[in-house]
Amino acid sequence: MIYFDNSATTQVAPEVLQTYNTVSQKIWGNPSSLHNFGEEAWNLLEQARQQIANLFHVKPGEIIFTSGGSEGDNWVVKGTAMAKQRFGKHIITTSVEHAAVRNPAEQLKELGFDVTYLPVDKEGRINPADLKAAIRPDTILVSVMAVNNEIGTIQPIKEVGEVLKDYPNIHFHVDAVQAVGKGLDNIVFSDRVDFATFSGHKFHAPRGTGFVYVKAGRKIAPLVAGGGQERGLRSGTENTPGVVAMARAIRLVKEGEDATVKREQAIKERIYNHIKQFDHVKIFSGRDQGFASHVLCFAIVGVRGETIVHAFEDQGIYISTTSACSSKKHAEAGTLAAMKVPEKEATSAVRISLGDQNTLEEADKFNETFDKLYMGFKKIIE
Rank of each mutant, 00 (worst) to 15 (best):
L131R: 11
A176Q: 06
F370L: 07
I170P: 05
P31V: 12
H90C: 03
I27S: 01
V76T: 15
Q155N: 11
Y318T: 03
G68L: 10
F291N: 02
K378W: 04
E40Q: 13
H57G: 00
Y318D: 05
L111Y: 05
S323F: 01
V76H: 11
V76N: 03
E332S: 13
F172M: 10
H310A: 13
A247K: 01
Y213R: 01
F189N: 14
L336D: 07
S67I: 04
K276H: 13
K202R: 15
T359V: 07
E230R: 11
F4L: 04
T153I: 10
L111E: 14
A105V: 06
G183C: 03
E15R: 14
K254S: 01
E255H: 08
K78A: 10
F113T: 11
N43L: 12
W42C: 14
G290F: 03
A105I: 03
K202F: 07
I157A: 10
S190H: 06
V163M: 06
E97I: 10
A176G: 08
E264V: 05
M339T: 07
I135R: 02
F195G: 03
N149L: 10
Y272N: 10
P241C: 04
R192D: 07
I381P: 00
S7D: 02
V115L: 09
A176R: 01
D191W: 11
I187M: 13
R86D: 13
N273Q: 12
V77E: 02
M145W: 07
I187C: 06
E343H: 11
S353L: 09
V23T: 00
G290T: 01
S285L: 04
A196G: 09
E62C: 03
K262N: 04
D130H: 15
Q107H: 09
G334H: 08
G228S: 14
N239K: 08
D5A: 01
Q357Y: 03
G236F: 06
E382C: 08
L118I: 07
T93K: 00
Q25W: 00
E159T: 11
H204T: 09
P119T: 02
G227N: 15
F284R: 00
K378L: 15
L111C: 04
E257Y: 03
V142E: 07
A333N: 14
Q85W: 07
K26G: 00
G302Q: 10
G68A: 06
C325R: 06
V244E: 05
I157E: 12
F172S: 06
L17G: 10
T240G: 12
A176E: 07
D258N: 13
F284Q: 04
L17D: 15
I151F: 00
T93N: 08
G228T: 13
I63R: 07
A81K: 11
Q50W: 08
F189D: 13
T139M: 12
